[in-house]
Simulated scan of single mutants.
Amino acid sequence: MTLADGLWQQVFVFDHYGELLPLVRNSLIAGAVIGLVGGLVGVFVIMRDLPFAVHGISELSFAGASGALLLGVNVVAGSIVGSLAAAGAIGVLGARARERNSAIGIIMPFGLGLGVLFLALYKGRAANKFGLLTGQIVAVDTPQTTWLIGTSVLVLAALAVMWRPLTFASADPEVAAARGVPLRGLSLAFMLALGAAVALSVQIIGALLVLTLVVTPAAAAARVTASPVLLAVLSAGFAVLSIEGGILLALGSTIPISPYVTTISFTIYGCCRLAGRRRPRRAVRPRTT
């Protein structure tokens, strides 16, 4: 057996696949719900230019999850608390883009430092530490699934309530303000919804690569459509496909889930980018006089 064959068998292992599949039933359910939430939230992340904020929130979500792991309490709850704290701080401190980026730059190292401290103090299984950073597929038990689904329902309900005014405010904030849309309150509400979505994504994909679930699907969808409705549908579909495909490919392998999810998500983006190159060229035609 060559070295390449050995590496290939480590990346894609399908021995006893049918027996292993029931072990990730909860992860598949949670992944579908998280993909839906991440894809829909990602639409406004792209519209409002917030990818950097997603990364900043994920760092404090990692700190909250690490602290919960150290204390022996619910990791999902700790992750959500950390995310909401970061999202709230960014929303309050960063009304303008320049101020927001400065706030994120301050919060990110603080959250990462806390997370590293908590993991250094944690004396349990090393897999639990690694999973918070790079994702895990078999550690999602029934209580965690309940937390994930319940939080996802709340985020989806919040998005449904503020979808239209948030779309208006994201597309043309000056006109929206003139029409009486409460921009500051709406921005804070969305940041809290984004924080919850990031916390959910961290449970499966890990804190380091959460951007691939919240940002990449929406960015891919934006390459092939300008329709707000189709943008949301494609973004959610791409996110669900990425996370479910990543879980199924990672099953049986010793490699974390994150490389699989990121590869699928990036491949979708690459295909959409290539497809999107043709659309403007066909749409724009020179006028003749």
Rank of each mutant, 00 (worst) to 15 (best):
T134Q: 11
F118K: 07
A221W: 03
E174G: 04
A222K: 15
I57H: 03
A103I: 09
S235P: 01
L20S: 10
I205T: 13
L117C: 04
L192Q: 09
A4Y: 10
V75K: 04
T254R: 15
G135T: 05
V198G: 01
S152N: 06
I29W: 12
G245E: 10
G195H: 07
L183E: 12
L28Q: 08
N101G: 04
T288S: 13
G42H: 05
A126C: 00
I247G: 04
G113K: 11
G150Q: 00
T225M: 09
T167A: 14
A250E: 05
V81H: 05
A89M: 14
L28V: 05
L209E: 02
G88C: 06
L166P: 07
L28R: 08
A218M: 08
L23R: 14
V155T: 13
G185D: 04
I247A: 09
A77N: 00
V138S: 13
V75W: 04
L60S: 10
V161D: 03
D5V: 07
G88S: 12
V233M: 12
A127D: 14
A32H: 02
S227Y: 02
V233I: 15
A63W: 09
D141H: 02
L84M: 12
G124Q: 05
M191I: 02
L93P: 04
L132Q: 13
G31K: 06
I243F: 03
A189Y: 08
F52L: 15
I149N: 02
G38I: 04
L211T: 13
V153W: 05
A89G: 03
R184Y: 11
A89C: 11
R48H: 07
L194I: 06
R179H: 11
P51A: 13
A169V: 05
S102W: 07
A236H: 04
L274Y: 07
M47L: 15
G115W: 02
A157D: 02
S79D: 01
A178E: 08
V233E: 03
A218E: 04
V13F: 12
L112I: 12
V175K: 03
F52R: 02
V161I: 14
A232G: 09
P22Y: 05
A95W: 12
L188A: 11
R98F: 09
A89D: 06
S79H: 00
L93V: 08
L154S: 03
T263M: 15
A63N: 11
F12Q: 05
I268K: 08
I205V: 15
F130M: 13
T142C: 00
T2S: 15
G150K: 01
G113S: 12
A199D: 01
A127M: 10
G18Y: 03
G111C: 10
P173W: 08
L114I: 14
P217E: 03
G246M: 10
L21P: 09
M1I: 09
A160I: 05
P256S: 11
A178M: 11
A222P: 00
R279Q: 15
V81E: 06
G135A: 10
G124F: 03
N128K: 14
I137W: 00
I149T: 14
G245N: 13
A218K: 08
G6D: 12
T212P: 00
R96M: 01
L192T: 04
S58I: 11
G105Y: 05
L230P: 00
